[in-house]
């Protein structure tokens, strides 16, 4: 039997990898991918709690579904914003986009 802590540590490490990418990458699309990785690691943690904790009644799985829905909404709006910024600026590097006006 695999202990609960093993799943939690994998989730924590995936979250840290996503944080690293979101902090250091320049390309806004890659930053979005790293945010998706972080959301996925939270989903993994929630589902492992739902499966292992007897008092949880599987609530983590329900929250995981909601996170998937919100993440889908977030990626749709976020990539639309990236497209709009690219049209105005001809770049998607987050360190070159430092003005909100044109």
């Amino acid at each position: 039997m695999i202990p609960l802590e093993a799943y939690l540590v994998v989730g924590a490490l995936l979250f840290a990898i996503g944080t690293y990418g979101a902090l250091v990458r320049r390309n806004a699309v890659v930053v979005f991918m790293c945010v998706e990785l972080m959301l996925n690691s939270v989903n993994l943690t929630l589902v492992s709690f739902a499966d292992y904790l007897p008092g949880a009644m599987g609530a983590g799985a329900g929250y995981a579904i909601l996170i998937i829905a919100v993440a889908a909404a977030e990626v749709a709006v976020g990539l639309a914003i990236v497209l709009a910024v690219f049209r105005a600026r001809r770049t998607v590097n987050v360190d070159e986009i430092n003005l909100m006006k044109r």
């Binding site: 039997m1 540590v9 990898i17 292992y52 904790l53 599987g58």
Partner: peptide, 22 residues
């Protein structure tokens, strides 16, 4: 962040846990 999260989640006492509850 990774070391902190992994440490906190690993040392926490989760009580009686067993797979297959969901």
């Amino acid at each position: 962040l990774g070391v902190f999260l992994a440490y906190v989640l690993a040392i926490q006492d989760w009580g009686e846990v067993s797979p297959g509850q969901g």
